[in-house]
């Protein structure tokens, strides 16, 4: 596996000046969704109003995680 990104890309990727809202777009709407041992149900997270209500439910046999990846 070779890297095709140069150093500038690397710095940009690691940049701390990235806007929080752009990170949250990706971390709350993107990313692989897995059934962790805690499942975040963040469908109703409304970033528009910074109304960050997240519902976390434990995974168990009676309430299996929704079909994820």
């Amino acid at each position: 596996m070779s890297t095709s990104l140069d150093e500038e890309d690397t710095r940009a990727l690691a940049g701390r000046e990235v806007a929080l809202i752009d990170i949250l777009d990706r971390l709350l709407q993107g990313g692989v969704v897995l059934a962790g041992d805690l499942v975040l149900s963040i469908a109703d997270v409304d970033l528009v109003r910074i109304d960050l209500r997240a519902v976390i439910a434990p995974v168990d046999a009676e309430h299996p995680a929704p079909p994820l990846l």
């Binding site: 990170i23 897995l34 805690l38």
Partner: peptide
């Protein structure tokens, strides 16, 4: 979020990385 992103961003140049959603524990 920044902590999570920092790790993912540092690994991304490896060429192939699947970022996980925030707070996968």
């Amino acid at each position: 979020a920044r902590g999570h992103h920092g790790v993912v961003a540092a690994l991304a140049p490896l060429g192939a990385v699947l970022p996980l959603r925030l707070a996968t524990v």
